[in-house]
Amino acid sequence: MPSKLLDKYFRMDKLPHIWCPGCGHGIIMKAIVDAIDKMGLEKDKVCIVSGIGCSSRAPGYMDFNTLHTTHGRALAFATGIKMANPELHVIVVTGDGDSAAIGGNHLIHASRRNIDITTIIFNNNIYGMTGGQYSPTTPTGEKGTTAPYGNIDKDFDLCKLSKAAGATYVGRATAYHAKMIKDLTIKGIQNKGFSIIESLSVCPTYYGRKNKKGDSPDMMKTLKNNTVNIKAVDKLDKNKLENKIIIGELYSSKEDEYTESYQKIIDSMQEGR
């Protein structure tokens, strides 16, 4: 019943979206909405926050409380929203440049606080909106308009980064594995703490063209072939894992959540009166 979902959760008058044909971002956006629908969250209690980039345009199409902020700062805005109204389900959608370059510091600190925000990173390994410059997740050796001779930077593993910084739910999926994005997003929202779902996307217009990765279906096939579900890792030969990207639920733990800890301080003040 895709059209029902469209009517219920999307701002139909704002569609069609601005994304290029074959862009992976729409699939990820749809998977997030699927997760919200499956959970039956009240639309008025969902707040979606983004930064700047192609990916960050998603909230405009989604019929919730939506905030399109400044480049890289979505998590900082979201932190204020969640502190002010912990009842809201706060979801951040962000690009790899948005979250890992200009917003990298906010990603680390939101993870560290374990504040109850679910972050979906649309990782297309490139700066799409500005026309194909290399990003912190562009693999070493690949090209961007600002890396005409190949990128010499090392690329970030955003899942490892967030986990090390303190995120309590970490998952990775791809636009090819849309159902997995949905399932991980549900778990992420359910987690009382900071959750991050890295969703590998495709940008055929810039990353694909610059690096001769073929068209969108070719790039989607690559996502399929280059990934291994974490559940299968133990059963596979070591050499079969080489250069593969592990997807699935990568980490989950229970820690004190930030706004709950703060509420305890408030409550203790009230008792002391």
Binding site: L67, F77, A84
Partner: peptide, 15 residues
């Protein structure tokens, strides 16, 4: 930068 962002977020949520 994030302090400024956070107060805008909180204000939008009514505080």
């Amino acid at each position: 930068i994030s302090s400024m962002a956070a107060i805008i977020g909180a204000s939008l949520a009514g505080k």
